[in-house]
Design a protein around this nucleic acid. Sequence first.
DNA 1: ACGCGTTACTGACACGCGTTACTCTCCCGC
DNA 2: GCGGGAGAGTAACGCGTGTCAGTAACGCGT
Lengths: 341, 341
Amino acid sequence: MPKRPTSADVAARAGVSRTTVSFVLNQRADVKIPDETRQRVVEAAQELGYSPNASARRLAGGRSHVVALVLRQSPEQVASDAVLAETLRGLSSAARAGGFRVMVELLEPDGADTSYSSLLRAQHADGLIVSGPRSDDPSLRELVRDDFPVVIQGSLADVPVQSVDVDNVAGARGAVEHLLALGHRRIACITNARLVYTAAQERLAGYTQALAAAGIPIERELIAEADFDAPSGHVAMAELIGRTTFDAAFVASDVVALGAIGALREAGFKVPDDVSIVGFDDIPLAAYFDPPLTTVRLPAFELGQAAGRALLERLADRANPHRTLLPTELILRGSTSRRRA
Amino acid sequence: MPKRPTSADVAARAGVSRTTVSFVLNQRADVKIPDETRQRVVEAAQELGYSPNASARRLAGGRSHVVALVLRQSPEQVASDAVLAETLRGLSSAARAGGFRVMVELLEPDGADTSYSSLLRAQHADGLIVSGPRSDDPSLRELVRDDFPVVIQGSLADVPVQSVDVDNVAGARGAVEHLLALGHRRIACITNARLVYTAAQERLAGYTQALAAAGIPIERELIAEADFDAPSGHVAMAELIGRTTFDAAFVASDVVALGAIGALREAGFKVPDDVSIVGFDDIPLAAYFDPPLTTVRLPAFELGQAAGRALLERLADRANPHRTLLPTELILRGSTSRRRA
DNA sequence: ACGCGTTACTGACACGCGTTACTCTCCCGC
DNA sequence: GCGGGAGAGTAACGCGTGTCAGTAACGCGT
């Protein structure tokens, strides 16, 4: 491994001082450097293959130019999170645009491993994006209290912190309204996760709002909880089938919906002829389910990007909205049809 | 944001020198410090909520204790890479065990954006794991030439660098042998990606090896190329159907297989009655396809972990094998059946 | 000749830590 | 009484950069 050149090497080669090198390479507008000198420095740096040492830069500058994405989810959840990759892409894109790099911190589930706060305290990162937070996360509250730059991806009602999320309520409401418009009246709901997760609560709220607006009473027995993955969707749907009847279901996650559709098939129901299904997320495979899944598109890339931008603005001390909600879009495919006469 | 305490603050509070603080907190075995003093320092650090500044540490120590994962894939590829999350988890787990953190660098596709080499040159990271490399990547060759710590996840024939991968050839061969054992003789193959990707080449090689071993000639028209996602699988299968006949197919990716199954369904073929299908990857949803997909399990978590470990060993200058191949496992589900008499 | 402003730079410090070489004290053996 | 060694700890340097205060040279008006 060859010794890396330092700014002093560049300075020597260009015949100027280290300070000048710094000025030139950082393009400081408030210092006048003639083009001729500037040129010499740039060339010298080029020839030596110089790139400034990140650590030294951070130490001197006080900022790391790194943002960290903290994933506060269980392994199963991460594994079945079909949109994580897209979100990460969005975040990465936003970070890059601001000259930041991205770190990822995967936490062990319900571990006392709240070590991620050390990311900030050790200045490993300048800011954090916390995904899938639980309200019972003490170190998150602590960070917020100490006014560290944190953006939550998701929502957390009672913590005063900036957050970015998709409009789960409106998305779910739209999905159910679609089913209503098709003439369905007995509409079941399978949540995407247990109701300790706010996203699950919100999507359920969208469901109840839509029904309420249509003057349809909410029936407890039409609602079942799933838990992120397809197996839980299978179980939930099997329960519903054994418990009551319905001619449509809003399943608040495509992955869960796939499991649910399997249960329907096993019970002899056809989708959408016997039961219409609307999912949520629009994972890439949803269009290839059998039947192709009507679902609510979650703008995953944009979500990551919005979170990144929000954090960067926070870091730049610019005022910005406390909460950003991204719109969803209903994607019509083959898993819903008009209620049979 | 409160001012963070430094080691000098801890030293003052404990009534010792900064050096002693450093010795104690780094648990240096070669320096004798009485327990009583040690205790005082630890307490002082605790009370102040001290955590050492990562940048300063790196600068002084010369190592960043960060590894970076470079994803050299197109957005579509990343989005449909169902195992990325798992791989990341594995890498993260290995890194954490070694006291490292993980950075992620998503590259724009075929961009001249080879900036990731700056990750190392700027000492942002101590080592790199490059996923999905293309052989035509100049900056990768450059890094290898300069002897930077790089581990490739995947394979790259003519670049002398350490690599970790799943045994694609054996996995594919096993899949096809399974089809042969069921009595199938006309077996089609749809690749998981274009053949510029080595993984696609290898899986295809497994297919041809299995056929060759069974004394079955390879027919060009039984082979079609897909491109990571379900739509491409749909197209590829439609082409095959229009071109020839077969009673089984090895589809070298579950995601692609889902698209392929859709095409079969549209053409009026039943899986597995008319055509048996074996996939590859065992994505979490594979068990919930209709029919549940027989496939080759790719140990994604272990792959990430192995890559992380390999890199860490490299960084510790320990000798280690040049190439690690992880075994796959054939998962039998419902998409394959014995050939009809 | 002198003051003054401008241009084009540079010297030196700060950032927070790891680490080497060194000091000081105390005690032990002779 | 004195050399020597172990124990306990420290001063000081170096890592590579950003940045402020400062300076030398020069032009220009009077």
